[in-house]
Structures are given as structure tokens and as C-alpha cells.
Amino acid sequence: MDLDKIGLYLGCLIPTEQYAYELALREVLPEFGLELVDIEGPACCGAPLRHINLSLTMYLSARNIALFEKEGLDILAPCPYCHQALSEAKDIMKKNPALKEKVNTYLKEEGLEYRGTNEHFHLLDLLHDEIGIEKIKESIKEPLEGLNIAAHYGCHLIRPNDIPRPDHSEDPQKLETLLKAIGAKSEYYNEKLDCCGAHIFINDQESALTKTGQKLEAVQKHGFDGMTTMCPWGQRMFDAKQDSAGQTVGASLSLPVIYYIQLLGLAMGKEQEKLGLHLNKSPVDKLGSKEED
């Protein structure tokens, strides 16, 4: 890996409530010789505003890329929703130079310019393709043996396939590979690509929680010890809203849901508190006891 520093673009949800993700990222990634750089000025990626006005999404994504580009930084966007918005903006401007010009006339008013010379990564490709499985294996002090963890990718991380995504749209495998690298097992389950429901939570909580509950129930029935995510929206549904999801679908749910970066930190021997484990609402303690069995 020739990356020794990278701009951290957290978007909206991670720095305003999904603190465990941020804590674990800041705790774990520097162990691989990667400096996370915070810059002034980023805003929302614009993806949540797609429903209202697509031009806003385009502008905000271009603006965020341009801010990091100005500092000569590549970007780590650990939220799949943000990552996809950035990828889409980049793709559209690459294919349509006239539109890029137009976006740039607006950016100029903020003293910015989009050129498209920097790259952006999600945590999935950063870990799997850049840092690499070997280095991850070398960092492990306490392998998570005996755990069978369900992988949840998140829709925006793998789709749509007409723009570059970090993994395959219908048969993603990198998260499973990363789970194996830290000593865990990750079996296939039929509901693997099912949606978490997060994006209609804002206007239709019952439907959203039904989706969440159905997937959790399926994972629990399969006998998994827990589920792992790389998405703050999915984590928020499966972890923080697990109780309400269980009530909505009439199931008694008790499934540990944990960010992959937290699992990695645990396998590296990091203190739980530094990984924000006390912030997970689902019964993540169960993972520890199962491991010792």
C-alpha cells in the first residue's frame, strides 16, 4: 500500500450519532500506518436530498471531493451511502465534461474547483485491496475463533454496477474474506443481500422496521452468533433499533450487531471502550462469552 495518509470524510450520520464507528476507525486504522486527516469544510454528501432535488446531490458530492482534492488528499468515505454519491458524481462528470464545467461554475463561487484527480475508498476496499489480507492477519493477537458472523454489506456499497463499486453486486465476498482473516467463520445465508430498510425510516417507520426485523429474524434463525456491518445506516437499524424491529415483526430478537472495524479491533487486542463497544445497543457481550466456550 502506498497510502500513508488519507482524508477522512465521515458524512452526516457517523459524526452525529454513530460514534462507535468513528471511534473504532480512529483507533484501528493508524495501526496499519495510515494517518487519518480531518479537513475543514465538508458537508453532507447530498444523497439524502436525492428525494427532493438531484442537482443538490450532485453539487454537494462534487464539492466534498473538491475540498479534499484541494488538500491533495485521497478520501476514505466509510459510509456506503456517501461513497456511492461520490462515485456517482465522479462518474457523471467524467462522462459529461460540459456538466463538469457547469458544476465548476458553482464551485468557483465557493473558491473551489473539481478536477477529479483524487481517489476515494470505502472501508471495504481500503482494508481488502489496499491494506490487504496479509497485513490484517499479521495484526491479529486474539483471533475470533468459534464465531460464525453474518455479513451485511448494504445496498449502496455494491450497487449499481454501472459505476465502480468496492465489491460484486450480486455475489460480494470481500467482507467474508475479511471475517476469515480475523479468525471468524461467515456462512452464506439466503437473505444476505436483503435491504435494512433505513431509507424509508424517515417517512414510513413501520415498513422500515419490518425490513429490519425480517432480516434480523432470518439471521438469528440460521444460528449465527452475530451480524457485522460496514454501514452506519444499516448498523443504526440492526443495532440501535433492534428492539423496535423485533416488536414490529413479533419476534424476540437478541442478536449482537457490530461494525467490522470493531471486530477487527477486538481481534487486534484493543480495549473495548476505545472501540466504542459500550455504545452498541444489541447484546455484543454475547460475542465474548461465545468465543471462550
Binding site: 449502496h156 450497487r159 433505513a198 431509507h199 417517512n203 414510513d204
Partner: peptide
Amino acid sequence: WTCVTCLKCKERCPQD
């Protein structure tokens, strides 16, 4: 307003 933006329709359409 109930589309969950899973993007599966776009992914799977035989006509792109």
C-alpha cells in the same frame, strides 16, 4: 415515497 433505494431494479433490468 416507499422506494427503499436498494437499487436492485437498476441492477437487474435486462434492458439496462
